[in-house]
Amino acid sequence: MSMDSILVSNPRNYNNSTQNIPNDIIIDILTKLPVKSLLRLKGICRSWYSLIKDEKFVKQHHDTHKNRQKYFIISRGHEIFHHYTMDVPQVVDSTRIVSLIEPPIRIDQSLKVYPNIQYFSSNGILFITYSHDIIVMWNPSTRESRRIPSPIYNNRGSMYSFCYFHYIDDYKIFRLRCGDNKEIDIFSTKSNMWKSIGMFPSNYYFLGFNVVMVDGIVYMMARNKENLPSVTILRFCLEKEKFEDELLFPYVVPWTRHVLHSLGEKLCLIRILDDNREFWLYTMEKNSWNKILTIPLALKNGLKPVSFTEDGSMMFQSFDRRGFVAYNSTLHKFEQVNVGGIKGLYFNKVVTYEETLSSLNP
């Protein structure tokens, strides 16, 4: 059934002020509304309820909002941690504020849990691991959540990531078990099951900083046991559930610090040179590295790129309790970004997501 037929199937959904408005205009207006407003509109009549739950409408709404990014934050307080959401801040707009949000399930919010939390986003859905056996997928816009079964073999210190594959309508979770025997497990929301894929390649040492997911590919830094001085990047295709060819670095300097990140839909490589205190940022496009930013670092501030702003600046999470700073590549300087409600908060990690009506349950 088309979206138009849903709207006209019940004539009671029209009143005198809307009966002459074409269906495509009504749909276009509705797709621009935030999720919170649409959830209220679902109760107006059956036809609107059916429309807002329609798969085509859900996709059209997501496509409309996918560039209107929001931040999800877990912040450490004095004795407990909290969850927050906020719109992506802008340098010229200091009206952004953080909003406290209840966690998706009842959990221990004491600080003893805090170091083990990992969280990621895909298709507007958050994936959160509070411990090795408390794993949740959560839509913060609709507040719908889904508890994921405990993995096959529970062990602390595992590294996770996940991705949504729209053409098969399936979320897949990647887990790398850390320890002496590094093994890879995959979870599918369609099958609701974990399965073991096999061992991490035996001819590489995993450099256990992080695993990064971009467009269905998991990237991991490693050293070839036969060529220890050099660092490489291994790629694991989550759709095909197998390793692909190595991804080479854009330069050969073996003992500098490298960190992988995802920035939107781009893979980023950060290189920090201690001697002259420079921050180099590369993005991967069409299997080729592109150096997009060089920032001189006068102070030893911890910085992590989070997103681009609407005016083209790059937003960084600052680990010196300044919250957010933006780098203006035209003026070549950092600018403080004021956000209401973050004073005194310490952010563990900030991930971007977009609003979605997507459901987590079959």
Rank of each mutant, 00 (worst) to 15 (best):
H82A: 12
D169A: 14
P115R: 03
V253D: 15
T232K: 01
D4H: 01
T64S: 09
D169S: 10
N290F: 05
I52E: 04
M193H: 02
F324S: 07
T189M: 14
S358Y: 08
K266A: 13
T356F: 00
S288M: 14
K286A: 15
I152T: 10
K300V: 03
I173V: 11
S191Y: 14
L126D: 04
N20E: 14
D185R: 12
V35Y: 01
N15S: 13
P296L: 06
E144S: 09
N192R: 12
M284G: 12
K286W: 09
N287V: 02
Y346L: 02
S37M: 07
H261I: 15
S161A: 15
L281P: 03
F249G: 01
I26Y: 07
I117Y: 03
D87W: 08
Y49Q: 14
N224C: 09
N154R: 15
D4C: 11
V325M: 00
I107V: 15
F120N: 10
R68M: 03
L299W: 05
L176Q: 04
S122G: 12
H261E: 05
H61C: 04
T64P: 07
D180W: 11
S94C: 08
G216S: 12
G216F: 13
Y119C: 05
S358V: 03
S141I: 02
M315F: 08
Y353T: 03
F174G: 08
L299P: 08
V253K: 14
N116K: 11
V325N: 00
N338E: 03
S329Q: 11
M199T: 14
L293A: 01
I173W: 04
R106H: 11
I217R: 03
Y119M: 07
D245T: 09
L293E: 00
F120T: 07
I134R: 06
D311L: 10
L100T: 10
L111S: 09
S191M: 15
D93C: 09
C237E: 04
L41T: 04
H62F: 12
K182G: 03
I6W: 03
N123D: 10
A222R: 07
N227P: 01
I128F: 06
G344W: 04
I270T: 08
E183N: 15
W48P: 01
L267A: 02
I295M: 05
L234E: 03
G43L: 15
P115H: 04
T31V: 09
T294M: 05
P115K: 06
N192L: 13
H132K: 01
D133G: 08
D180A: 15
S110G: 10
D133S: 12
P229H: 06
L39I: 01
E241W: 11
S288F: 15
L207S: 02
I148N: 10
V337G: 00
L357E: 09
W138N: 11
T356Q: 00
V136S: 13
A298M: 01
F319E: 06
P89L: 00
M213R: 12
K349M: 15
F200D: 03
N210H: 08
G340V: 09
N16H: 13
R271Q: 12
I134F: 02
P305A: 15
I101F: 00
P250E: 11
S307V: 13
D274E: 11
S9T: 06
S2E: 12
Q118W: 00
D93A: 07
C45V: 02
I292M: 01
R106P: 09
H61T: 04
T283Q: 12
V337S: 00
R68T: 07
R175G: 08
L297A: 04
T283D: 13
K53W: 01
S75Y: 05
A222Y: 13
R68Q: 08
F334C: 00
